[in-house]
Deep mutational scan, measured.
Amino acid sequence: SAVVMEEGSPGEVPVLVEPPGLEDVEAALGMDRRTDAYSRSSSVSSQEEKSLHAEELVGRGIPIERVVSSEGGRPSVDLSFQPSQPLSKSSSSPELQTLQDILGDPGDKADVGRLSPEVKARSQSGTLDGESAAWSASGEDSRGQPEGPLPSSSPRSPSGLRPRGYTISDSAPSRRGKRVERDALKSRATASNAEKVPGINPSFVFLQLYHSPFFGDESNKPILLPNESQSFERSVQLLDQIPSYDTHKIAVLYVGEGQSNSELAILSNEHGSYRYTEFLTGLGRLIELKDCQPDKVYLGGLDVCGEDGQFTYCWHDDIMQAVFHIATLMPTKDVDKHRCDKKRHLGNDFVSIVYNDSGEDFKLGTIKGQFNFVHVIVTPLDYECNLVSLQCRKDMEGLVDTSVAKIVSDRNLPFVARQMALHANMASQVHHSRSNPTDIYPSKWIARLRHIKRLRQRICEEAAYSNPSLPLVHPPSHSKAPAQTPAEPTPGYEVGQRKRLISSVEDFTEFV
């Protein structure tokens, strides 16, 4: 048969007729292969192709491409040299491709048809291009793949890379869960390890502090508590009631339409708007009261037996805890006409967050109470924005700035309102402590230090009264110190430094 060459192609190359033996071998191979691939376009007849790359030819070592076609129900084999250009295909004639002069020997084609199974398996396991790669995943090629499931790999992101949580363990979102698992493993320790309690022994800490320079003076030496005195035992138990972190309780009120001037209507609300609910979820963490331990979680007086509701929101960081007394989460009882059960919590909070959804101005004093010092007013606006402002009593104007209003988005509203309420509550605590000038409020841990110092002074006084020969370590507060001759004046800087060093040991009130 003659071949018409394309323009620009090399000279004529004689194409030899395939021997009958080659056709029989390739026909047997075509019957084993699956003929249901995917359909081509209507211009080209339905056909199945599979590209198999052999590394070497037997005796020649030339890479070839073998295409199996099922045109007219008769499979045909096409061998081509890759750099050459194939002729145009037609549905009426068999596929013809040019070969190099080196394939002119018909014996070479017979060798190609009689490829060993080793070469076929190696060509099938190679990388296939384009559409033949999808075909190689079918059941027909499963014989050339190794048996057994593939090893499982770690989760992959859409980009093909490992997620960040699997790369950096410290930033993994499941870090707290692993800590819980470690605690569970520790709890399952053997009885021999049960006595080993991690941490620092208080006796060891005391020993280090006792021999430090801070205890060089007799006034700073630790003293032993009497065991037989019940009054001192009660004082030590009272110390446990003062937490070592700051605590805040903040009221949250929802004002519906037409309720801006009605205290009873505001306290009777059992739910609010959708934006109000989203605002609550951002204030803190939802907790169930019956599962809380009052000595570990500050509840601000809420009952854990269901008297004040089942849930509330709280927030904490390293040095403070805040609980929100939310009116809509507290039960509304029919027998309580004046809502006294709610007001006994909300009316005693220094700061209230008022979500004013009424469309009218909310005035300070609508919720009557002796300790309502500051109101954080949240007014929802259009386009997911809110107006946040402050209202306070006249005696609080020096501590709280009420002249600045803020426009905040719904997303950042819980954070801004919480921070403003916490700052206002700190100012309210300082303002409330002014009624007792001898006990200015600095912080909870300073209050613990003052309680310890008062307890020490009482013990020293009782020891001096029981044994008059012992001198008083600290003179009583009601006694007057003996007159001392004025010492020589020293520079102001040295006096300030000495006073600062003494105050650092005794108390921190002056620095606050």
Rank of each mutant, 00 (worst) to 15 (best):
L422D: 01
I319V: 09
S403A: 09
K499I: 07
H431K: 08
N412R: 04
H474A: 15
N425Y: 03
E462T: 07
F279A: 01
E288D: 09
V505D: 14
K290M: 05
T332P: 06
V335Y: 13
P414V: 01
D401P: 07
A421L: 01
S262Q: 06
V400F: 09
R454N: 12
F508W: 11
K368V: 07
I377T: 05
K333Y: 15
R448T: 09
G347C: 15
A481T: 13
T247Q: 15
V304N: 12
P471C: 09
L225C: 15
H432Y: 15
M320Q: 15
Y276E: 00
S273F: 01
G284R: 06
Q259V: 02
H432I: 09
H316T: 15
F373A: 12
E494C: 10
V236L: 12
A424W: 03
L381V: 03
K480S: 15
K406G: 15
R411L: 07
V323K: 11
S433L: 07
I287S: 08
Q429L: 08
C385Y: 08
P468T: 09
L449E: 14
E462C: 09
G365F: 04
G496E: 11
V495I: 09
S229L: 11
Y313G: 04
S466T: 11
R498C: 11
H451F: 10
V473Q: 15
M320N: 14
N467G: 07
K296H: 06
N467D: 14
E218F: 14
H478K: 11
V354K: 00
S428T: 05
K368S: 14
S229M: 07
E462Y: 06
S433F: 12
I377E: 04
V400M: 12
M330A: 06
E278F: 03
G492K: 08
G256S: 04
H248W: 05
C340N: 15
V416C: 04
L299I: 08
K343W: 10
S435F: 09
R285W: 06
T328F: 01
D341K: 15
S389R: 11
A405Y: 11
K480E: 15
V354D: 01
Y465I: 13
V408E: 01
E257P: 12
P380I: 00
Y355S: 00
I407N: 04
D308A: 12
F324Y: 05
G359E: 03
P442Y: 04
C460H: 09
H248K: 02
Y465E: 08
A322E: 05
H431T: 07
C292P: 12
K290P: 10
L280M: 08
Y355G: 00
A421C: 02
R339Y: 15
Q310T: 11
P222D: 14
L364E: 15
L283A: 00
C460P: 13
L422A: 02
S244R: 10
E488K: 09
K368T: 13
V335S: 13
E263M: 03
V304R: 07
